[in-house]
Amino acid sequence: MNPTKIDPSLNSHVESTHISGLHGTVEHTHDEAGNSMFGFIVFLLSESVIFLSFFAGYIVYKTTALDWLPKGFTGLETHEPAINTVVLVSSSFVIYIAERFLHVKNLWGFRAFWLLTMAMGSYFLYGQAVEWRNLPFGFTDGVFGGTFYLLTGFHGLHVMTGVLLQTIMLGRSFIPGNYDKGEFGVAATSLFWHFVDVIWIILFILIYIWQ
């Protein structure tokens, strides 16, 4: 019973590849990079709802809480975070340039600008850490302390993930023939980086500008 069942499936691939060659109708099902990119975009859309929920929570607390700021604290310093913001937002353009270099097969140009993006991301994380160290309130100091560290921390986690992904992509750029099957990894990392940037812009407006 079983051998006779397996036999036909041996021929199956000859059949299906033959047909796909004839009509050219089934390539879209083999477009795995396209599927991955589509799936990744769907995932990012879903991920953005977590941030939207935190933002909504922040707005509710800010507008309704009786004791908003911790005692003795007058407001957040915006100068350093603004510099941080400029660095992070401009890194989105840098990573785009890196992507263009890869597109025209200029690997060293890609690596240089990719590394610059990583440096800017790391600078942002460093700036965030310095700011955290100098704040007079902690995670458990009221809803302001809670939401502040929750939002900046959750975003910082995403920046860290982004830098980590960039490190992996940089390492993989040294593998010969890495881009023969397309540039999905780089494109997805880059998209993720833009996503992290957009989230930061909303976060900066909500937390630092709207005080």
């Binding site: 879903s46 977590i50 929570g57 995670f139 009221g142 302390g145 809670g146």
Partner: peptide, 23 residues
């Protein structure tokens, strides 16, 4: 679009329960 909202609430509840935040 729905599940991330529960995730956000669950994370905040977990922090309240374990770390001592006051969400």
């Amino acid at each position: 679009f729905g599940l991330p909202a529960l995730t956000a609430g669950a994370v905040m509840l977990l922090l309240d329960l374990t770390v001592g935040t006051s969400f």
